[in-house]
Each structure stands twice: as C-alpha cells, then as structure tokens.
Design a protein around this nucleic acid. Structure first.
Ligand SMILES: [Mn+2]
Ligand SMILES: [Mn+2]
Ligand SMILES: [Zn+2]
Ligand SMILES: [Zn+2]
Lengths: 130, 130
DNA sequence: ATGGAAATGATAATCGTTTCCATTTTCGTG
DNA sequence: CACGAAAATGGAAACGATTATCATTTCCAT
C-alpha cells in the first residue's frame, strides 16, 4: 500500500488514534476516542486527539461523517466501505452492503457534473427482537 | 394536499419561517433565517426561530440537513420524497430521485427482519460551477 | 371580562470544537 | 553529551450553534 507516504508525517498521537480506531472498528466521536484512550491509562489531551484526527482526515486515512445531531464521527477509511441498518429502539446495528448506493451516487453525481463525490446512506427501523 | 392536518398546529412563527424559506428558496441556517427576519423589521427571537423550525421539521414540512461543519440548514421540502446532491463548496443543492435507494432500503430491511423502516441518503461533492 | 393554555423572547446554560500559549519532546549538529 | 530550533502537547479560555429556563405576553373558549 502507500501508507509510506502518509507515514512520513505520522506522529505518536496519530498512531495512537489509528490504533484505537482499528480496535473499535466502527464510528466514534473525538470525545469518545479520547475517553477510551484515557480509560486505558493514556494521558493524551483532548486537543491532541482533535489535532490528530484532523490530520488523519486531511491525509485521507480517516473518514469524517456527522451524526444526526451534527457531532463529528470518525472511522478508518479502508476497503471496507459499508452502510448501516440501525434499530431505532435498541440501537443494534447491522453492517450492510451498499452496492446499489455506490452506483446510484456515482450516476447522479455524473449526471449533474459533480466531482469529488461522497455519500451517506443509513437505514433505520425496528429490529425483529424489538 | 394534506396541509390541513399540519396547518392545525401552525402558529404565527411557523408561518413566518415558511414565508422566509419560500422567499429565499434554498437552504439556510436558523441564524441566517433569524437575521433575515430581523433585517425586515420583525423582532422575532432566535429561540422562536429554532422552535418553529424544529416543529416544521417534525411535521415534515421542512427538510433538515447539515453543512460540512455540522451546522443545521433548513429548506422547504417539496411534496414528494427525494434526496439531495449538495455542493460542499457553494452549498448549491439539487433534488434527486432515489428509486434505487428506496428499493435497496426495503430489500435490506426485509432481509434482516426490520419493520417501520426509514432511511437517509445524501450525496455531496463539488459542483461544476466550483 | 376572565382564567388557563400556548407562545414568546431574553438570558443563561450546554456542548462540541477551536484557539492560545506556556511547557515539554524530539532531533540534527557540533 | 550538549545545545538550540522546530514540532508536539495539553490545559485553559474562547467560540459558536443549539437548548433549557423562566418570567411575561398573547390567545381563546367559556
Ligand atoms: Mn456507500
Ligand atoms: Mn428516499
Ligand atoms: Zn432493536
Ligand atoms: Zn458549488
């Protein structure tokens, strides 16, 4: 891969954040990531967490999305792009494929001449258990 | 149409906000809408603007989405269900069909036994003008 | 007119995020 | 190893959007 290029400007904090994001897997806010690190005994400051995440986003190593309330959430952007099916009642989440969405987003964007296109797509409902 | 049902719980402030949103056309933040009203001599309070917008969103009369920085922006929504293609740079928005999405959401939800299903899907990029 | 409910808006409180700034770490060079 | 510059760090204050409070005003049905 081409991590080498990015690795150049990687500092200790960046690596810590990548590690946590790998471990947790899904989305997490800056504050949540900070708490996790703190809980594990790392004295990293909230400011540094924000800085590291910002730099990782700039280097396109991390994806930045928004929760419904506008809070920023981050995830490692890897080859495993996927979407979510979330239960409104119990919060359970299923990761699902979005092949149809990818095609749709690309098609629509092309049709209207948009570049550097991204998308969000989530499905929510009540799961079978609830 | 069935505005009658919604009209019941419409108060003076709701109507003011609808009027402004009609006039301005596109998306605007609560603060921007407040400023516009103030500039026009209306002494409406910021709190009331937020309240009215929230109630309009609840009644599905107004669409709520987020700018890149997480700030909430509002817009009158047309009569049919649709999605958005938003320019990250200038904020221009195109309403688009989501037929593929509707099918995808329904299929996925069925597959995992979810009920009362809804979904969100937005595409964002840089428009041809920017 | 009158009493209660709904609406209003100024102010304070929240909360995520950014800015400041003083201190500490890192690192190349002599 | 010693030294100084540059990068990194983190606590505290500043910020900006949004929400919660609460006293006051406007509506309305009786
Ligand atoms: Mn996707
Ligand atoms: Mn749709
Ligand atoms: Zn559930
Ligand atoms: Zn644009």
């Amino acid at each position: 891969m081409k991590l080498s290029a990015a690795t150049k400007r990687m500092n200790k904090s960046d690596l810590k954040l990548i590690a946590v994001l790998e471990r947790t897997g899904g989305f997490a806010s800056a504050q949540e990531l900070h708490q996790i690190l703190r809980r594990e005994g790392d004295g990293i400051g909230l400011t540094t967490v924000y800085r590291a995440l910002q730099s990782l986003v700039d280097d396109k190593i991390v994806d930045l999305l928004r929760r419904e309330d506008g809070e920023a959430i981050y995830r490692l952007c890897g080859d495993n792009h996927h979407h979510h099916l979330v239960c409104k009642s119990c919060g359970d989440t299923v990761e699902i494929e979005g092949g149809a969405i990818e095609k749709w987003a690309k098609t629509m964007a092309e049709e209207f001449g948009f570049r550097e296109v991204g998308h969000t797509a989530e499905i929510f409902g009540i799961c079978s258990k609830c």
